Amino acid sequence: MSENPNAPLGAPWPRPQQVAPPAPAPESAPQPTPPPSPQRRWRIVALVAGLVVLLGLTGFTITRYVLRQPPPPKPPSQPFDIGGAYARVRPGVANVEAVLATGQGVASGTGIVLGADGLVLTNNHVVEGSIVVRVTLAGGRVHDAKVLGYDRSHDLAVLKLAGVSGLPTATLGDSGQVKPGDYVLGVGNAGGQGGEPASAVGRVTALGRSIVARDAETGATETLHDLIQTDAPVRQGDSGGPLTDTAGRVIGVNVAGSAGYAVEKGEHESYTIPITPAAEIAGQIAAGKESGSIHIGPSAYLGMTVNETADGAGAMIQALVQKGPADEAGLKAGLLVVGVGDQPVRSAADLIAQMDRHHPGETLKFTITGQGGQQATVSVQAASGPIG
């Protein structure tokens, strides 16, 4: 193209200066790195600056993300002040030990201190068959206890400690105010281990329930009515102990059963005698007022065990204590007791209930029958012996 600036197409673009290429370096010598041009330097600086800005923004974003993470989940809170409720009822809770007759061992349970003078409420099945009862109070003091009386049909017994006064007592609530869904706390001598009572938390699941309790030795059954049902995991040894509300007020007497007293219940079910009627029965026993179901004082002892019969024909004599009242009167194992005085006996439970109406020293007339169907009347003078 013409170099004339006045040419029709104008001046051409200037041509780049022709520079001869450098001579190739020897193979052994490294190629020198040419210094970056000013334009490349600015590109590198811009790239680094951009990377720094990007990292800064990324770091800022991560930091904000970490700060906004939700806190770790908290452990589930207690449904109520369990420690506070326990502390309020604990001074009025006692461990009960009953030494059983004929070398059968020791039964363990729990009691509720009702009176500062040593009045203690527990289950009848805790002390039934015992010859010695001991009560361990809060603080570890141990006292012998006398059974003032019992109500077998409600599974309640009242003990009296000798020579005590000023004892802390349990605060009683109103079991009539209890409703399903209420939180509750069971306290007792779980497992009969002694020492500090254990606690069991649950909720009321039903009211007005009935259960059947069975005596392992005689096979006799007793139906307990109008009970509070809960899912608190009370165990053997908790029997006779308190069930409290969330304020530590006693609303019932736990019925957990024992090795010789089986309570028919489902899994995750516990039963409690409402405290309002229980306290009324305890007051009658403490006042020495007998009734059709309340026995006051020592039990009438015959020295024999009986079993249920399959056809409800009476109470079968299973065994006799050598030289006991029944043995001395000539009764034998295998005979049927079908009456006491003018009252018929159709079962072991009938006979036990009849004996609760009598006392040591009384002479009782038993109607007996054998396999041949013939009947005879045998007089037996009751002695003083194990409770119930």
Results as ranks from 00 to 15, higher is better:
Lys323Met: 06
Glu308Met: 08
Gln343Ile: 14
Val204Cys: 04
Lys146Val: 15
Gln236Gly: 15
Lys365Arg: 13
Gly241Arg: 03
Gln371Lys: 14
Asp238Ile: 03
Ala29Gln: 04
His225Lys: 14
Glu362Cys: 07
Ala23Gln: 04
Pro12Val: 12
Ala107Arg: 01
Glu97Tyr: 04
Gln69Trp: 06
Thr171Pro: 01
Ala326Gly: 07
Asp117Pro: 04
Ala287Pro: 09
Glu267Ser: 10
Ser165Phe: 02
Asp311Pro: 09
Pro344Arg: 01
Ser291Gly: 06
Arg90Thr: 04
Pro344Cys: 03
Asp174Ala: 11
Ala278Glu: 02
Gly370Val: 03
Gly163Arg: 15
Trp13Gln: 11
Arg88Ser: 14
Ala247Cys: 05
Ala349Gln: 08
Leu364Val: 11
Gly208Asn: 12
Gln343Met: 12
Val255Ser: 11
Ala213His: 01
Leu9Glu: 11
Ala247Ile: 01
Gln39Met: 09
Arg40Glu: 15
Leu148Met: 14
Thr218Gly: 15
Val99Asn: 02
Ile368Gln: 05
Gln381Asn: 07
Gln229Arg: 07
Val201Gly: 05
Leu9Asp: 10
Ala190Val: 08
Val142Asn: 07
Asp144Gly: 14
Ala216Gly: 10
Asp81Ala: 13
Phe60Pro: 00
Met1Asp: 08
Lys146His: 09
Ala206Tyr: 07
Gln354Asn: 13
Ile317Ser: 05
Gln374His: 08
Ser258Ala: 15
Leu54Thr: 15
Ile228Asn: 02
Thr33Asp: 02
Leu51Arg: 05
Arg214Asn: 04
Thr33Pro: 00
Asp81Leu: 07
Val338Asp: 03
Asn189Pro: 08
Val158Arg: 00
Gly202Ser: 05
Pro75Arg: 06
Ile62His: 10
Leu351Ser: 08
Gly241Ile: 01
Lys160Gly: 06
Pro71Val: 05
Leu55His: 09
Glu264Trp: 06
Val126Pro: 00
Leu335Met: 13
Asn189Asp: 15
Ala157Pro: 00
Gly186Ser: 10
Gln17Ile: 08
Val126Leu: 09
Thr63Ala: 14
Tyr65Leu: 13
Pro79Ser: 06
Leu161Thr: 12
Val53Gly: 13
Ser130Phe: 07
Val48Tyr: 14
Ala200Trp: 01
Gly372Arg: 13
His358Trp: 13
Ile285Asn: 00
Ala349Ile: 13
Ile62Val: 15
His359Glu: 09
Ala213Ser: 14
Gln236Ile: 12
Ala282Tyr: 00
Val53Pro: 09
Arg214Trp: 02
Pro233Gly: 08
Val187Pro: 06
Ala326Arg: 05
Gly330Glu: 07
Asp144Arg: 11
Pro180Asn: 03
Arg134Met: 10
Val178Ser: 03
Ala46Arg: 12
Val338Pro: 07
Ala170Asp: 04
Arg90Cys: 03
Gln371Thr: 13
Tyr150Ile: 04
Gly219His: 03
Ala49Cys: 15
Pro91Asp: 10
Val337Glu: 02
Thr218Tyr: 05
Gln69Gly: 09
Ser379Trp: 04
Val164Phe: 03
Leu351Val: 14
